[in-house]
Design a protein around this nucleic acid. Structure first.
Lengths: 356, 356
DNA sequence: ACGCGTAGTCAACACGTGTTGATCCCATCA
DNA sequence: TGATGGGATCAACACGTGTTGACTACGCGT
């Protein structure tokens, strides 16, 4: 390999030489500096900059200014056990919202996968520097491995990076932005009950949704039957939910409705029902939570509780900015309200159980 | 606001003082430096580093080493007219693939939206620096605005950043990684023809797919009817495709099959057919291209041509690395083959037209 | 003619690091 | 014992930039 002469980058000194001035002047011109420059000189410098195609060296700027001033980035760590957050429709929208809001705030963002950043100390040390990142957004699903490495890295984050916000799952004492899961579950289950359903199975995520499911049943005078709560595996959502749905189908008497913890699970359940020759919503009604993009495109359209994903993202960055402004002062966590979106999978537009 | 004393970061000098040595020694220890250090001294320095929680300043390192050595990033610019690539299942997988492969190569990546990076010169100048980015992947859908700003920014990329690879759409003379669109279309249409279909509508994207669609018809002795090629609007895929499908449904005689340019369009078509009381595949068969994640989860399952999205991503980075290795030498473009995935929407598992 | 303020410029320091020429000290060998 | 070598360390330079103290020249007032 011939070591072709690397063309050295153009520096302020080159510009200064070309314009016949001192280097400092060039700096003044670029930053509308702390000192004034004679109009005629300014023009000469600008011309030289244009001619040589000069571009300031960011590294030198950041070194000098202490990256605070020079525009530090905002870090986003997202994911579960792999990169695959990017391939999950719910988190996609969250991420898109984060990017949009960051752009609105003029913040550069640096994106890291959970796998890289939180389970690999070497990667963490090499890539996540307080020099470069002044704020961090953690987007972590419920279940993550509590390895020693993981805990150690959380410690480092805590001591190095002043501002951290969590989306979805609260971690340590960092402020959190979440949607109201219990309320979402109550909305979904309440809606099914109002349509006349009495045996409602739950394709579960065991968080506040379960509480909401249970409470909604009791509120409406129905009994809570643990057998109707079926496990689903976050690591293989589609397959595990499909199997659990098959179980539901085999029950006697068969539940007339299914509450799915999120839209992915609902879609999986619909597939299982379809494959067994059962119709949605005529034979089994379905309601879920999330309102991902395709929820309204598939047929039957999914009745689901809309989670304000983009607003959650926007709030997360707002909280981060607040933290930054009031140095280290604990910023409040946020719980956002949700809203039911009625489509066809619940059967509200078709019939009411027991009334036809 | 009380200007709480910013705690100055720990530097090599601090470590050196604490360990009672010269600063250079600290540098040697950290980098297993060009010079040897006495074992006993080394231990003292390491202890000091640990005690003070010293972390080298990346900006200074990069300044000194010229970011080439210090680990420069790999840039990804993706999107159409907005950030929404993140919310489109096809591009999600592409991006996930890029991140995965970058991780495998130990490359840090910096992600930019098309909107930020390619249409806003100010943002571009402020955030995309040759100092930091040694290679660039452009993930651009077919249609992008050819504004002056856009062209100007492409010029700047060309002169500042040595290595560029395009995914999906070739731009300028940069090397490209694409899947074989014409072959994909021929596979899809050929499959429908082999099932006995003779009137096949095309929910179109007007690229090599159209060529493939046309050629496949001719190859099988069918005539090409431009009326069967319906426009769809990339800016509002679902709605426009839905409307075009309604048109198809109203045709006399009605086409017995639809070839959709991608899975999103196929799902939209299925919705329109469902809403008009037509069954898939019994009344109208559907085949498309992409094989996005949900293609196998919805019912009927989507028969589609699998695009090797992750392999495309991996290849893109391979090409980038090749470019880097052989300084500026033009790297070859890559066209990846595709494969048909038969599910239920085509009807192959149900019946053959005219044979039952 | 002299003093003085000011607009404009230059030289020099600082940011924190990697690296090299020079220095010190001690062990080894003639 | 004196010279030699080399292991270990230090001081100093360089990377490219932002900023401050010092310097020059010029205009103005007395």
């Amino acid at each position: 390999m011939v070591p072709e002469n690397k063309k050295r980058a153009v520096t302020q000194q080159d510009v200064a030489d070309a314009a016949g001035v001192s280097r400092g002047i060039v700096s003044y011109v670029i930053n509308n500096g702390p000192r004034d420059v004679a109009p005629e000189t300014r023009q000469r410098v600008l011309a030289a900059i244009r001619d040589l195609g000069y571009q300031p060296n960011k590294n030198a700027q950041r070194l000098k200014l202490g990256s605070e001033q020079a525009g530090s980035s905002l870090g986003i760590i997202a994911g579960g056990e792999s990169f695959n957050v990017l391939e999950r429709p719910y988190y996609d929208t969250i991420l898109a919202g984060l990017f949009e809001e960051a752009h609105r705030l003029g913040q550069e963002v640096r994106f890291f996968s959970f796998f890289d950043a939180l389970t690999d100390p070497v990667f963490f040390n090499n890539n996540i520097h307080a020099d470069e990142i002044s704020g961090l957004v953690l987007v972590l699903p419920a279940l993550f491995p509590a390895t020693e490495d993981f805990q150690e890295i959380l410690d480092k984050i805590a001591e190095r990076i002043p501002n951290v916000v969590c989306l979805e799952e609260p971690i340590r004492d960092w402020p959190t932005v979440v949607f109201d899961r219990a309320a979402a579950a109550r909305l979904a289950v309440g809606h099914l009950i109002s349509l006349g359903h009495q045996r409602i199975a739950y394709l579960s995520i065991e968080d506040e949704r379960l509480t909401g499911y249970r409470q909604s049943l009791l509120d409406h005078g129905l009994s809570y039957d643990p057998q109707l709560v079926l496990a689903t595996d976050e690591a293989d959502v589609f397959e595990s939910t499909y199997q659990s749905t098959v179980e539901i189908i085999g029950m006697h008497p068969r539940p007339t409705a299914i509450f799915a913890a999120n839209d992915e699970r609902a879609i999986s359940a619909m597939a299982a029902l379809h494959d067994r020759g059962l119709r949605v919503p005529e034979d089994v009604a379905i309601v879920s939570i999330d309102n991902i993009g395709i929820a309204g495109m598939i047929r039957p359209g999914l009745t689901t509780v809309d989670v304000p994903k983009k607003r959650m993202a926007a709030y997360a960055l707002q909280v981060l900015m607040m933290q930054k402004q009031f140095q280290n002062r604990q910023a409040a966590s946020v719980v956002l309200p949700v809203q039911l979106v009625v489509r066809d999978s619940c059967g509200a537009r078709v019939r009411r159980v027991g009334l036809s």
